[in-house]
Every structure is written in structure tokens, then in C-alpha cells.
Write a protein that binds this DNA or RNA. Structure first.
Lengths: 252, 252
DNA sequence: TAAAACAGTTGACGGATCGTCACTTACCCC
DNA sequence: GGGGTAAGTGACGATCCGTCAACTGTTTTA
């Protein structure tokens, strides 16, 4: 209530961001197992007790970390989904956004499966989990909306088999699967390395949409050229960050 | 060398299976975090020291556990891949095998992502990891072989885009992704529950192959009927285990 | 047969980490 | 400046991992 206490409150809220910054650095440097609450407390120059005022437990930290990363993805997704393009072109742009996200923030690809797989959700606070789900749901919704748009325009019909939800779940699971395989860093289908996997995802995404008959099919339109154009225009900043030469370094 | 020492040796080798049985039971009952070496030692009625003669560490136990489960999958896969059917029908049979495996051994679906995601591989012994990779590679190879067969017969052509490896990686990652999402038990695309996800996988697998133009396309052949037939014949045992009525309970 | 050598087994222990809580410190208001 | 409240601390108990010196039972040797 008092002015001072307001300032304090703000400080505390801002501090959380710093905590997450440091947590992320530790995870990147020493891996998920390398992140301990003692270490994090020391890095923040606060005590463990204070840390536990912000986060219910270690899993809560991871949850918060992931949410922050997912917000970035959501931003990329929404930028793609708001482009003025026909639906299938737009979903291709969104695919590019997904790829850029993975390449820009590989730490996400490493953390996400960990969080999903192990029993982190069981221990993290309900609020954090909900907050995380909300972002992911919005990402999913962004994709779904495009599919429904395609259906509305008649570029895409489902007759009696499948639905926009089916199709988008297919894209989604392929994306999740590639990330998981990619983060393992060995096993089959890792022979070609990360670049091969990303290329595979791009190609298979296109083939899946072709399989649903979403016009224009991948042999009816030069999606590769669209990709290059988007990298030069809408996603120029991201492309530059990745040092992708304008047109040459596209996979395959 | 002596007869007695041989008997002992055999006993020790067999003991490992028992250890894994008990470990699996604990994981199923109390989750991955519920599995402690102390608990496992107590369950085995041996001491922790003896346990550590068999396994380098806790991660090694999980690795061994997973390998044993994967061997079952491999068996199912190979049975499917040896059926006398045209390639695309055969890969559909293999898809059914994958689905049966997940439904028969849901614990695998729960353990597999955990192992892949977290840093278990970093700690488990090299031998266990290699053994595990080997099985997975064989599974992958079984699928790949069918694709190559289809290519050889001319049912499937890649022109300049894609390859059998691309395509199979697509199927693979979709499978892995669905399992991961399924094991999380919440988030988007979980709305419909596990059955929806499996159905989605089936449908999207077919659509992906359609997208590659693998004949006969899913609207040129009654794959649903093939599925029913396989459940009655080749996979009757498994279907019975799952209490799938012969023809009625197919998803969708 | 007794003693020595060996293989197999044990569980107490050190080390690491988590999460808590009784206590201290800092800040504010009167 | 004194009293009250909010913020912050770090020692502590609890849990779990993985080790190793000691122990037990069996085989080999003398």
C-alpha cells in the first residue's frame, strides 16, 4: 500500500526475471542436472529461503523457465499466422517460424522434452502448469485456426475422414517428436544430425498437408521460394541472428 | 569353471531379470521418481551392494528396463514386416503393430520419453546405451526396409524431393511425438484423450504416406478392413489380450 | 581335516541435494 | 527512538545415491 512497499513489490517481481535468467544460464552451461537450488541461490546473491519465496520448488523453476521460452515461440507463431497469405502458404510460414524458434533457442528444445517427460508437472505448482499450458494452447490454436481457415475457403476438405484437429495434431506431434529425437542426440534417424531432422520436418510437414489434399499442393506452388522471401522480409531479424545468408543456406 | 560356480553364474544372470521385473513394478506403482535403489534392493531381498554389481547406477536400471520393453516391440515389428503383403499394406500392418505395442505396454510409453529426455544416457553405462540403440535401430530398419521395398516395386517414387529415410523419419517422429504427448497427459491435443491420439496417429500416418504418393493410396484400398483382418489373424493373441472385440472396437 | 584363498554379499557411511523454519535484519510509521 | 511488520537468512533434518571395508559361505590346498 505504501509507496515504498510498492517499489519493493516491483523489485521483487523484476527479480524473478533475473532469477530465471540465471537459471537458464546454469542449465545451458551445466545441463538440467547441473541446476541446483543452492547453486541458483548463490548465483542470484540471495539466499535459498528467498528463492523459495518465488518458486514452490525446483520443478517450479523449470516450469517458469519453459513458459518464458514458449512466450517467444507464441510471438513468432502469431506473427506468422497474421501474415496476409492464403492458408496453406500461411501455415508454411508458421512452420518456418517453428523452425526458426528451434534454431534460435535450442535450449528450449532441450528443456521442453525434459519437462514434458519426467514428472515435473506432478511437483510444480498448479499455477505454473496452467500458465504453461495456456501458452502452448495458444500456439496450438494459432495453427488450428489456419487449418480451419483453409477448410472454410474450400482449399481443404475432410469428407468423412479426419478433421482440422486431427491434421494439426499430426503436425504438432511430428514437431514434438523431432524435437525429442533431436535432443537425445543419438539413436536412429539421428544419423544425419540436427539439420537433417529439421529438413525432414519441413518435408514431412508438406507431405502430410499434401496427403490431406490441402491446395495448393507442394508441387503446385513454390513453397521454397516463399520461404526464402519470408526469410528476407518478415523474419529478416531472426534470419540475421542465425546468420542465414538471404537465400543460400536453406536446408537441402 | 567348476559345476557349482556355473550354477551360481546362471543364478546371477537370471537374477537380473527378476530385478527388472521388480523395478518395473515399482515404476508402475510409484512412478519414475518412486524408484529408489534402496527400495529396489529391499524388494529384491538383496542388498544394495549386490544391486550395484548388476547395474552401474540407477540410470542403468532404467536403460535395461527400457531395452527389455523395446525387444518386445521389435518382435511385433518383425512379425509385421515379414507378412506376405504388398509394401504399403505391410507398413500399415507395422503401424498396427506399433499401436498394439503402445496399448499392450503403456508403461513403455511412459518410460521411453523419460529416458530419452532427461540426462539418463549421460550416466548409464555405454554398454546399456549401445544395447538399447541397437534394438531401436533394428525397429527403425524394419520400417525403412519396407519403404525401400515399395520404392523398388515402383509403388513409391521420390523424384528429387525426399527419400525413404525422410519418410520413415517422419513416421517415426510422429510416433515418438504422440507417445510423448500421450505420456504428459495434458496440454493441447490431449483433449480427446489417448484413444484420440492413437486414432490421430493412424490417420496421419496414412495421410503422410498418401502425401508421398505411395500406392495404393488410402482411398484406393480398404486399409481399415485390412486392420480388422490382421487383428483377427496375425495379431489375434494381442487383440485378445487387449480384449478388442474382433471387428467392433476399432478406433473411430 | 584344518587352514588358506576366493567369490559373493552386506549395510553403514560420506556426500549431495532438497525444502523448511526459527531466527535475524531492514524498513516503515507513529 | 521504539515497536511492528515484511523480507531475508542459512543451519538443519530428511532423502537418496553410490562406495567400500568387513563379513560369510564355499572351494581349494596342504
Amino acid at each position: 500500500m505504501t509507496p515504498i512497499s510498492d517499489r519493493k513489490r516491483r523489485e521483487i517481481a523484476e527479480r524473478e526475471e533475473t532469477f530465471l535468467d540465471l537459471a537458464l544460464r546454469i542449465v545451458l552451461e551445466q545441463g538440467y542436472v547441473g541446476l541446483t537450488m543452492d547453486k541458483l541461490a548463490e548465483a542470484t546473491e540471495f539466499s535459498k529461503g528467498t528463492l523459495y519465496l518465488h518458486f514452490k520448488n525446483k520443478e517450479d523453476v523449470i516450469c517458469a523457465l519453459l513458459r518464458r521460452l514458449q512466450m517467444v515461440r507464441l510471438d513468432l507463431f502469431q506473427r506468422a499466422s497474421q501474415l496476409e497469405l492464403p492458408p496453406r502458404q500461411r501455415i508454411t510460414a508458421l512452420g518456418l517460424a517453428a523452425e526458426l524458434f528451434v534454431r534460435l533457442y535450442p535450449e528450449n528444445a532441450r528443456i521442453e522434452p525434459i519437462l514434458k517427460a519426467s514428472s515435473i508437472r506432478e511437483k510444480a505448482s498448479q499455477e505454473r502448469c496452467d500458465a504453461l499450458d495456456e501458452v502452448e494452447l495458444q500456439c496450438f490454436a494459432a495453427v488450428l485456426e489456419i487449418a480451419q481457415d483453409g477448410q472454410a475457403r474450400g482449399d481443404l476438405t475432410f469428407s468423412d475422414r479426419g478433421s482440422p484437429e486431427h491434421m494439426v495434431t499430426g503436425l504438432w506431434s511430428m514437431h514434438v517428436g523431432v524435437n525429442l529425437i533431436s535432443s537425445v542426440g543419438c539413436g536412429p534417424s539421428q544419423a544425419g544430425g540436427e539439420a537433417f531432422l529439421q529438413d525432414t520436418l519441413y518435408e514431412n510437414g508438406a507431405r502430410l498437408l499434401d496427403g490431406y489434399g490441402w491446395r495448393p499442393l507442394s508441387n503446385e506452388f513454390d513453397y521454397r521460394a516463399l520461404r526464402e522471401e519470408l526469410l528476407r522480409t518478415q523474419f529478416a531479424t531472426e534470419a540475421k541472428q542465425l546468420k542465414l545468408a538471404d537465400s543460400s543456406t536453406a536446408p537441402n
